[in-house]
């Protein structure tokens, strides 16, 4: 538990006591993690319980007659539509974010000082709680007939994620040595070639990080979807919420849809952890 980074000299002769301590350390950590993730694990277990077992009191921890029916039923009662709509809205808005954001990020990274007025103004858009503009968007969408359309929600999610995408990408591009561009310029490449053939391949990991984050935020967003769409577009969080509020919740199906909704994200999270730490270090190191 020391704050000091454990330095491990090559253990030539680890004593029995040291091994025991090491094992104990990991046992403590696994126990702590199980405790911490308890609410989510409970949801996971519930997803495999048949309806009859859902309302037992006191509840049984493991499903007695495990079933996969919740997943198939959950898909047909709204989970499938939710996943489909969320995929459409999240992926298209992310694509637009990257197309709009990458050139802007490059311009910011190379031609403006870091944390200057412009970068700050762009980033500060992200600090605004969504509840503040949502009423304005609602009135605007009624006027432009964008209410309850995919186009409308895609525009909103692009607006929501673009500032973050620009900021992340410009921080990333700043880390690329300028010598690549200078070499290309000396070879006589015009600026757009330099951009497409030199910078884009070099910043692929940054584009991936920004893209995944933007996907996750759009995938998880609820308030805009709640207010700006009706019966036509039903994203996953909205499907889950309506499911929950208008009927006696069938926790098994809810759990199944919920687990299906977060599963892909959890697989990504291992990769995300490294790049997240890296982008925080970049940001903080530059202050």
């Amino acid at each position: 538990m020391s704050p000091i980074p454990a330095s491990h000299p090559p253990a030539d002769r680890a004593s029995f006591g040291e091994i025991l301590r090491e094992v104990l350390k990991h046992v403590v950590m696994v126990a702590l993690l199980l405790l911490f993730l308890c609410p989510l694990l409970w949801l996971l277990l519930t997803a495999f319980k048949p309806y009859a077992e859902l309302f037992n009191s006191p509840p049984s921890v493991l499903p007695v007659n495990g079933t996969l029916a919740n997943f198939t039923e959950g898909w047909t009662v709204g989970g499938g539509k939710g996943i489909g709509d969320s995929l459409i809205v999240a992926s298209l808005s992310t694509a637009i974010c990257l197309v709009l954001g990458f050139p802007a990020a490059y311009a910011l990274a190379r031609r403006f000082p870091p944390h200057g007025q412009l970068s700050f103004t762009i980033l500060s858009l992200r600090m605004m709680p969504p509840i503040v503009p949502v009423i304005g968007f609602y009135l605007l969408f009624q006027e432009l007939s964008l209410f309850d359309t995919y186009t409308g929600l895609i525009i909103i999610y692009t607006f929501m994620n673009l500032p973050l995408v620009i900021w992340l990408l410009s921080e990333f591009i700043r880390q690329i040595p300028k010598s690549y561009e200078e070499a290309a310029r000396i070879d006589g490449a015009p600026w757009y070639r330099l951009f497409w053939d030199v910078l884009l391949p070099l910043s692929a990991p940054g584009v991936l990080t920004a893209g995944i984050l933007s996907m996750i935020f759009a995938w998880n967003e609820f308030l805009f979807a709640l207010v700006l769409t009706g019966e036509n577009v039903i994203t996953l969080p909205k499907a889950l919420a309506s499911f929950f509020l208008f009927q006696q919740p069938n926790w098994g199906q809810l759990g199944a849809i919920g687990i299906a909704a977060v599963g892909p994200l959890l697989i990504i999270s291992y990769y995300m952890q490294r790049s997240l730490i890296r982008s925080f270090s970049i940001e903080l190191g530059g202050r």
Binding site: L37, L40, W219, N220, F222, P237, L240, A261, V262, L265
Partner: peptide
């Protein structure tokens, strides 16, 4: 994991 989850979930 928790911070990756949708707040609804």
């Amino acid at each position: 994991i928790p911070m990756m989850l949708a707040p609804i979930v």
